[in-house]
Simulated assay, not measured.
Amino acid sequence: MTGAVEPRWLDEEEQHAWRAVLRAGHLVRLAMEAALDAHDVSLGEYELMSMVSEAPGMRMRMAALAELVVQSRSRVSHTASRLERRGWVQRVPSVEDGRGVVLVLTPEGREVLEALAPVHVESVRAALLDHLTREEFLAYGELMKRVVLANRTSDEQATDAV
């Protein structure tokens, strides 16, 4: 095989750092999931409702929502179906073009989200923030913002803020 490029292997320090990042990410996610599981809500469901609640009019196009939560449109659609069966969201046609679908948080969904928000934020604090200084956490967020921007497609970068 000619012209093969040698992989840029991680050195020992990079490997240790990478494994810590990977493990920490898994552990933080598990902690957030466990906190919400106790209320019979998945992290994916909570995340969708939370993102929609922060959008203008508590409504967001499904395609934009999929990009925001970094999930396939199909996965977001399945999650939205579960939430819709519970009466927490509603899918409606887009008023802008009639082709797109918009996810709207219902009043019941807003009540559920308001009850779950303290549970979620406490799990985030206990799993991550309580182990870092405020400055470290904010710096970590800025670093991760660079990673997000570097790994988006050009279409996503043009349409979605970090």
Rank of each mutant, 00 (worst) to 15 (best):
Y46H: 07
Y46K: 01
Y46P: 08
Y46F: 12
Y46D: 04
Y46T: 01
E47S: 11
E47M: 12
E47G: 05
E47D: 14
E47W: 11
E47L: 13
L48T: 07
L48I: 11
L48S: 01
L48V: 10
L48F: 00
M49G: 09
M49H: 06
S50C: 05
S50F: 05
S50L: 06
M51G: 09
M51T: 12
M51D: 09
M51Y: 07
V52R: 05
V52Y: 02
V52P: 02
V52F: 02
V52Q: 06
S53Q: 02
S53F: 00
S53P: 07
S53H: 10
S53N: 09
S53Y: 01
S53M: 00
S53W: 00
S53R: 10
S53V: 00
E54C: 15
E54F: 13
E54V: 04
E54Y: 13
A55F: 08
A55H: 11
A55V: 07
A55W: 02
P56G: 05
P56F: 04
G57D: 02
M58P: 15
M58W: 05
M58E: 15
M58D: 15
M58C: 15
R59L: 09
R59T: 14
R59P: 06
R59K: 13
R59C: 07
M60D: 14
M60S: 09
M60R: 01
M60I: 05
M60T: 08
R61A: 10
R61G: 03
R61T: 01
R61H: 06
R61Y: 01
M62R: 15
M62S: 15
M62W: 01
M62V: 13
A63N: 10
A63Y: 01
A63K: 08
A64W: 08
A64N: 13
A64L: 15
A64Q: 14
L65G: 11
L65H: 06
L65W: 00
L65F: 00
A66D: 00
A66H: 04
A66Q: 00
E67P: 03
E67I: 08
E67S: 11
E67K: 03
E67F: 04
L68K: 11
L68M: 11
L68T: 14
L68E: 10
L68G: 03
V69Y: 02
V69M: 03
V69H: 01
V69C: 11
V70I: 12
V70F: 13
V70M: 12
Q71P: 07
Q71C: 06
Q71T: 07
Q71M: 09
Q71R: 13
S72T: 14
S72C: 09
R73V: 06
R73I: 01
R73S: 04
R73T: 11
R73E: 02
S74L: 07
S74E: 08
S74I: 10
S74N: 04
R75T: 14
R75S: 13
V76Q: 06
V76A: 08
V76G: 08
V76Y: 02
